[in-house]
Design a protein around this nucleic acid. Structure first.
Lengths: 197, 197, 197, 197
DNA sequence: TTCTAATCGAGACGGTACGTCAGGTCTTCTC
DNA sequence: GAGAAGACCTGACGTACCGTCTCGATTAGAA
């Protein structure tokens, strides 16, 4: 209930310019050069920031890319006001697919996913800050539909969520062409129908 | 009409012992140690094979792991004799899920997937030798069901395949718990129902 | 008008301990093992210094040996005070011969000479920092003797220098026994006499 | 005095074509590329000969270069008929200097010298087949002059030989310009005069 | 103002793995 | 039996990044 800002922060404050320069540089390098290009060394050089500073604030290059990623897609889980359950799901899967298909985002996420098996911290962050919230949003909508009787009571929500959201990731991680808008519609429709009886 | 043996193989023949030792070592290292442990250096040491020999036959550590992987799951795309279409699909998705959930296989595939964004050759091989044949098998079965009128004529086969096969991969790459047998059944059922009308 | 200390030296200062350890290790290895033993790898190991640090400061193993060599014989070109020209020349050739005959120096120089045809930088350094200053010292003394009328005016200084200094090198590079003190005396005497008329 | 050819040599005889091709290739490579270029690997490739064959007949690349060198300068120790001692010495030193100054020979010898500290066999061969015969020829001539009273009886033959022959080598191994004809004359004259009294 | 504390930039350092090159040794087939 | 072809192990190369470590320079609030 008191003021949350720390009143006793002495010393030189953290440079916001350095932070954004680093995030920007990491994204740029990763986008044209792949994961191999986004090394701490290269990021430091491009961001005009010393390596020491980077190591002070981030544990790895992948962590930088992930932080930049989460920054850009913050608040991307939305539900159109007044929408029905099926509309909401369609909107969610559609915007998820759009994000992953975005050439300025998808490759970055793919890089972070690639870093995750070697780095438990990345794996955790990815689950907690990316996967789980999105699954929860879809699951809530489905549960609502079940409650309203729109969907069968014995639907396995987790399985339904899997069927709805995994295709865009699957296509991303294997470098396949992303789903187009129609395909997303058909996907949702198919699963939705399958959940009615 | 002579025997099949190649008459013109000059020079010392390739050591099969070395090949298998390398594949074995790579798998072992990757399984307990993650992708970071399966370096060419470490593989060479563990397999008692020289680094140069490895570089002669494989372009990277990931390529070794992939080759070992493809070796172990060779001919894993099967269809139970006399099975109906839905049984065949269920069998396929179930065995795919089992493979990915196998603690001696899944992590290896996850590592290879992680290597793919940085290595176009790995990405290609993964698509051509892993993904495409499996998709084709499922797609053929679905098409057969459509032809027989078991499924609606306007089913989008690619979308249906996506919904059926992507969940196991999705759970693998994000380090989530794999689907259990029941979940696989429900997944297939849901999608199958969704494709009937 | 402050002290001579450099005010603008940023970053971690170079480790003198590492430098001397490397020079020492290189000399030791080269002395018992020959040029083949003094690899950068072996030097790094023996000096307890990382290979990268070595590559940061020296371009090759031979360069290290040469630097150590130049360190140990620094200021070895001296002229006894109050000496006549012939005494000075005798002293110079004698001490040159002693250096090359020194089992802790000669083999090192021989190694560096062996490296020179394959490495222009070594060849240059050898000429500029070893050969030329020594030739110049002898040439100056001879020229002085000519000026004083002790030697004939039409002496070819370069040829005389060659005759005086080359034998110790010749014996070193071919692995022959070095000249002893008497032989040096006779050598100088012979050439000196040959230069009087 | 029967035929010198061994009557009991069974199997395929050694290919002379291979031998000369190897010697030629080694010389060519060493001449434009320095010692680093004349590897067994490169020689085999250029000579169109298998590496195995080379290793069968020569112990190292330097040995090949040396053998080629000795082939080309065979019988180069001559004495002009009817020449006086001083003429003979002048001729010898002059032709030695010419050989070392020859751009098709000097660099090869320099390479072999460079290989000698790391290879006792090369060092031995160089002394036995190159240095010693030449020193012996000069020493014999000098001794003859002493016997005839042309030179002082207390001349140190070894020292005199050193002074006469070492300058060309010295200049070769350090990459200095070779002596020209006049310089050779003055060198011999100087030493000769110095040996008279 | 001066002190104190933190950040930042520069750069050296010990490591690990990379991918390559050459050296030798070997095994097999061909002439 | 000589030679060619080629696989193999060994060891060193020079490079790229890693993560850590000194330093000095900078920038703030606190004394």
């Amino acid at each position: 209930m008191g003021p949350t800002r720390d009143p006793a922060r002495r010393g030189r404050p953290r440079s916001q310019a350095a932070r954004t320069a680093v995030l920007r540089a990491a994204a740029d390098l990763a986008l044209d050069g792949g994961p191999a290009a986004a090394t701490v060394e290269a990021i430091a050089k491009r961001a005009q920031v010393s390596r020491t500073t980077i190591y002070k604030w981030w544990p790895s290059a992948a962590a930088i890319v992930l932080e930049g990623l989460l920054d850009t897609v913050r608040d991307s889980i939305t539900r159109p006001p007044g929408s029905t359950a099926v509309e909401a799901v369609t909107h969610h899967v559609g915007s998820l697919n759009s994000i992953l298909a975005d050439p300025a985002v998808g490759p970055l996420l793919r890089n972070v996913i690639a870093a995750s098996p070697a780095d438990p911290a990345i794996e955790r962050a990815l689950l907690d800050q990316w996967i789980t919230p999105r699954r929860a949003a879809v699951a809530a909508t489905l549960r609502e539909a079940v409650d309203r009787g729109e969907l069968s009571a014995d639907v396995d929500i987790e399985v339904a969520v899997d069927a709805l959201v995994s295709p865009p990731y699957y296509r991303l991680v294997f470098g396949m062409a992303p789903l187009d808008g129609d395909a997303v519609l058909r996907l949702v429709q198919t699963v939705w129908q399958g959940c009615r009886r």
